[in-house]
Write a protein that binds this DNA or RNA. Structure first.
Lengths: 162, 162
DNA sequence: TCGGCTATGTAGCAAGCGCTACATGCTAGA
DNA sequence: TCTAGCATGTAGCGCTTGCTACATAGCCGA
């Protein structure tokens, strides 16, 4: 059995654990336990903790995007898209994703080499996702993304919008 | 010499270290070294790591607010305040504060007991600061705060606004 | 002078971290 | 059938974490 297959089999369970326990809870031994293997084997398959983290986060981001509704081609004005998305992002089922996103950006501050490329790719993904359904330029899409991120951040800080 | 005086003397150096090295770098031994004392004495003065962290972060937040310009009583519309503040917040000298803020919110996710009250108080502080110079209600001030936080977050994720 | 309180140094504990050394079972190709 | 290499278990290393036990020096009031 090739190594890629092993990784692909591990990823869903690693992702589930990481979503539930966050980046700080994603140390090798608990991850291994959750995936039914050993820390020894995680390093064997992914080379390094950083490699593993990158793979799992990429997997999670792809999963989140697949869970969001497809664009129907219509482009709506700023406030309409904002209302729709801020409503959607209040879904508690998405809370673990927001938490992980903030933890990822926090990690990118002190270890940019490892985490910044991942964070950047994820930001781009959702920027494009917004731009595709917003009647406006990329700057406006960026602003909408920032606004949604800001509300999510403040919610995690214990200040939900009122 | 009373204990409060000792704490007050330690705080500036602890704050400087925490600003430079962030929340993850703020473990007892490095902090103690930076403040010219020992981990033993930090616990002695602050009781607990959580107590120390709360005190230092409060000190830092007060310092940041003191550094921002005072309100002259005039109230400006949303875009005017936004432009002024997003300009001010791009100052590289403030980058450590943004980084620490995101790290604080990230910490509040997994340890709300310790960090959420601190994060909430800081959010309130700047919400009030914005509300005092914005021509609009608290909801608009909140939206502006979210927008600024969002831009800061994306900047830390390696995506500065364009 | 003595007794108690504040302050501080030294040493260490138990847990967790990423990662590695070493041995070994298993299986597929020559 | 032999052998090379993939896969995996066991054990442990060196380090950092928050925190504590214990001893003790210095000072201040009775």
């Amino acid at each position: 059995m090739p190594a890629d297959t092993h990784r692909a089999q591990l990823l869903p369970r690693l992702a589930e654990h990481m979503l539930r326990h966050g980046l700080p809870g994603a140390s090798l031994r608990p991850l291994a336990k959750a995936a039914g293997t050993s820390d020894r084997m995680l390093i064997y398959h992914f080379g390094t903790k950083a490699g593993l983290t990158a793979a799992v986060l990429e997997h999670i981001a792809a999963g989140l995007e697949a869970r969001l509704p497809r664009s129907d081609g219509r482009r709506l004005p700023f406030e309409a898209v904002f209302d729709e998305l801020s409503e959607a992002f209040r879904d508690p089922a998405l809370a673990p994703y927001h938490a992980l996103w903030v933890e990822l950006v926090a990690a990118a501050i002190r270890d940019p080499e490892t985490y910044r490329p991942i964070a950047g790719r994820i930001a781009d993904r959702f920027h494009a996702w917004i731009a595709a359904r917003l009647d406006g330029g990329p700057g406006e899409a960026f602003r909408l993304l920032a606004l949604l991120d800001g509300y999510a951040l403040l919610r995690l800080a214990g200040r939900p919008e009122t």
